[in-house]
Amino acid sequence: MADVLNRAGGMGEVAEVAGPYEIAPFGNELVALGRENPDIVGLSADMSKYSDIVPFMKEFPERYFNAGVAEQNAVMMAAGLAKVGKIAFCATYAAFLSRRALDFIAIACAHSKANVKIVAGSPGLVNPYGATHQSLEDLVVMRSVPDLTVIDPCDAVELRHVVRAAAATPGTFYIRNLRGKVPVVFDEQDFTFEIGKARLLRDGTDVAVLSTGFMTERALKAADAARAADVSAAVLHIPTIKPLDEAAVLDVAARVGRVIVIENGLRSGGLGSAVTELVHDTGLDTPITRIGLHDRFHPCAAQWYNEREFGLDQDAITGAVITGVWSGR
């Protein structure tokens, strides 16, 4: 069992990553920001190691605050620090933030327009410890909070840019954190990130794959496989779930025969629902397939196992892009 959990990034280990990667991009970028700006502070709820904020804690121990196993306290402390002019990055598990601390995020932070950046680790189906630790609904919940910017980065490069953009932008952010060994998908030399903007990574005419978070890497691989099968697939990466880049979504949806939306979370209420609502309300009749998780609790298991069982692995996504049929359950 220990080996299975280690492969999934549990028990204090990091998941195996093929190809180039960075270690703890969130924590290291926060250190760089901290050196530039003395108003940057970091907080956690007894999860410093598992949220990759340790580099900041070691560099700036006087600017790091551990609230203990009390996520509500951590968020309220962040809101209080923001009130006195600090830029507060509060990092712990997404499941605990989106459930236990939701009211504090909504009222103390978003409602007050507090300069708090919620950094949510192990979002979606990446945690091996089952329903208590898997935050399948975090995008659904956070998308419903007014005055909250919600971002799901694709890789280490984008995560670093997101952290820097959030620090420079007043207001409350919910950022899905990629921790441990984080893949590098984008080329730093020609990469740009803008809050609220999607990026067309591939153009195509048959199908448009709209993806967020690390699912974008799988969307790109699926598009490459589709090309070999004479299917022209566009890939629109949507890092900012809220505010949604409506113009980019509608532009690509109007030019293709069908749309597939892929996300690491519940298929109802998140990005897939946002895209479906927008396309429907605009009057387009482009068919949409939403790839995500169904309304159920998922078992304790390695990430690769759960993804294979529930249709989020590369084979299931590639099959849906090529044939239009998704095998998720």
Rank of each mutant, 00 (worst) to 15 (best):
Gln189Asp: 15
Glu22Ile: 00
Ala45Arg: 00
Lys86Met: 10
Phe191His: 11
Ala156Met: 09
Glu188Gly: 04
Ile260Asp: 01
Arg202Leu: 01
Arg308Met: 12
Gly85Ala: 05
Val325Glu: 15
Asp281Gly: 00
Lys83Trp: 08
Ala302Tyr: 05
Ala74Glu: 02
Ala45Leu: 00
Thr149Cys: 09
Pro61Phe: 10
Ala32Ile: 06
Ser122Ala: 13
Ala70Asp: 09
Asn264Asp: 15
Asn306Thr: 15
Ala165Asn: 05
Ala254Thr: 01
Gly34Ser: 09
Gly130Cys: 09
Pro25Thr: 09
Arg143Phe: 06
Arg160His: 09
Pro146Tyr: 04
Ile317Gly: 00
Leu278Met: 05
Ala24Asn: 13
Met77Trp: 04
Thr276Met: 13
Ala114Thr: 10
Leu244His: 03
Val119Phe: 01
Ala316Met: 01
Ala15Lys: 14
Lys117Ala: 01
Ile322Pro: 01
Leu43Ile: 10
Arg258Met: 06
Val163Asn: 10
Glu217Thr: 10
Val69Trp: 08
Tyr174Gln: 02
Glu188Gln: 14
Ala15Pro: 01
Lys221Leu: 15
Val140Lys: 12
Phe173Asp: 04
Ala229Tyr: 07
Ala156Gly: 02
Glu188Leu: 14
His280Asp: 08
Tyr50Leu: 12
Glu16Ala: 15
Asp315Ser: 13
Ala228Arg: 11
Phe297Tyr: 15
Ile241Arg: 00
Thr172Lys: 03
Met142Ile: 04
Gly328Pro: 05
Gly124Asn: 03
Gly328Ile: 02
Tyr50Ile: 11
Val75Cys: 04
Arg267Met: 13
Glu137Asn: 00
Leu284Phe: 11
Val119Glu: 02
Ser48Arg: 11
Lys181Arg: 15
Gly80Thr: 07
Asn73Leu: 15
Gln72Glu: 14
Thr172Tyr: 05
Lys242Leu: 03
Asp187Val: 03
Lys83Val: 11
Ser268Trp: 07
Ala110Gly: 02
Arg176Glu: 06
Val157Tyr: 02
His237Tyr: 14
Asp251Trp: 01
Val163Lys: 04
Pro183Ala: 07
Arg179Gln: 14
Ser48Met: 07
Ala222Trp: 00
Ala165Cys: 06
Lys49Ala: 13
Asp206Pro: 02
Val184Arg: 10
Gly124His: 04
Glu36Phe: 05
Thr172Leu: 07
Asp39Ser: 12
Ala2Cys: 09
Ser135Leu: 08
Lys83Gln: 15
Met11Trp: 03
Glu13Trp: 14
Val182Ile: 11
Asp52Met: 04
Val75Met: 08
Thr240Met: 08
Ile262Ala: 05
Thr132Tyr: 11
Arg176Asn: 11
Ala15Tyr: 02
Asp313His: 06
Ile40Arg: 02
Ala229His: 14
Ile23Ser: 06
Val126Cys: 13
Leu178Cys: 06
